[in-house]
C-alpha cells in the first residue's frame, strides 16, 4: 500500500498532474513594434491614430477606447489609472500575425502555423496561451477575421 502511494506520488510529481504550466502569451510583432496584450497603451509607442472612438459601459463605470491605425485597431481598458491593451483587431490582409497568418489565408495554413489545439466556439477558432487568445473566423475555409484578445476583458 505504502509502495503504491509512493508510485502514485512520483507519477504526479513527474507529470505535474498532467497540466503544463506556461507563462507564454500571444503577442504581435508588426513594423518593428512588439505589441503585448495587457501592456500599457501610449501614443508615444503607437503614434497618432487615424480614428479614435469611445464606448461607455452599460451601468458600470469605465470607457472602452479604440484606436484605429492603418491595418489594425487597438482596444483598451483602464485598470488602476493605467490604460492597457485589451485587443488587437486586424483590419485587412496587409498585416500578419507574428507567425505569419493573415486575412485571406486558409484554415490549413492556420493549422500548420498554430496546430489543431484550438477551441471551436460558435464557429470561432480560439487558440489560448495563458490569459491571451487568438481568435480566428473563417468562411468556407478562408480566414476573414483575426483578433488577439485578453481573456475575460
Amino acid at each position: 500500500m505504502k509502495k503504491l502511494g509512493i508510485i502514485i506520488l512520483s507519477i504526479i510529481l513527474l507529470t505535474g498532474c498532467g497540466k503544463e504550466v506556461t507563462n507564454e502569451v500571444f503577442s504581435l510583432n508588426y513594423n518593428n513594434l512588439k505589441i503585448n496584450l495587457n501592456e500599457e497603451f501610449t501614443r508615444t509607442k503607437f503614434g497618432d491614430e487615424l480614428e479614435y472612438s469611445e464606448t461607455e459601459n452599460c451601468a458600470f463605470e469605465g470607457i472602452g477606447k479604440t484606436y484605429k491605425y492603418d491595418h489594425y485597431e487597438i482596444a483598451t481598458y483602464t485598470e488602476d489609472n493605467q490604460e492597457k491593451i485589451m485587443s488587437i483587431y486586424f483590419l485587412d490582409s496587409d498585416i500578419k500575425t507574428s507567425e505569419g497568418l493573415t486575412i485571406g489565408d486558409d484554415i490549413t495554413k492556420m493549422e500548420e502555423l498554430y496546430g489543431q489545439d484550438y477551441k471551436l466556439e460558435n464557429d470561432v477558432y480560439i487558440y489560448e496561451k495563458s490569459n491571451t487568445q487568438l481568435k480566428i473566423i473563417a468562411q468556407n475555409g478562408t480566414i476573414i477575421s483575426i483578433e488577439y484578445v485578453l481573456e475575460e476583458k
Binding site: S53, T66, K68, E73, L91, D123, I137
Partner: peptide, 8 residues
C-alpha cells in the same frame, strides 16, 4: 464607433 467585427 469601433470597426464592425466580422460575424462568425
Amino acid at each position: 464607433f469601433p470597426s464592425k467585427r466580422k460575424l462568425a
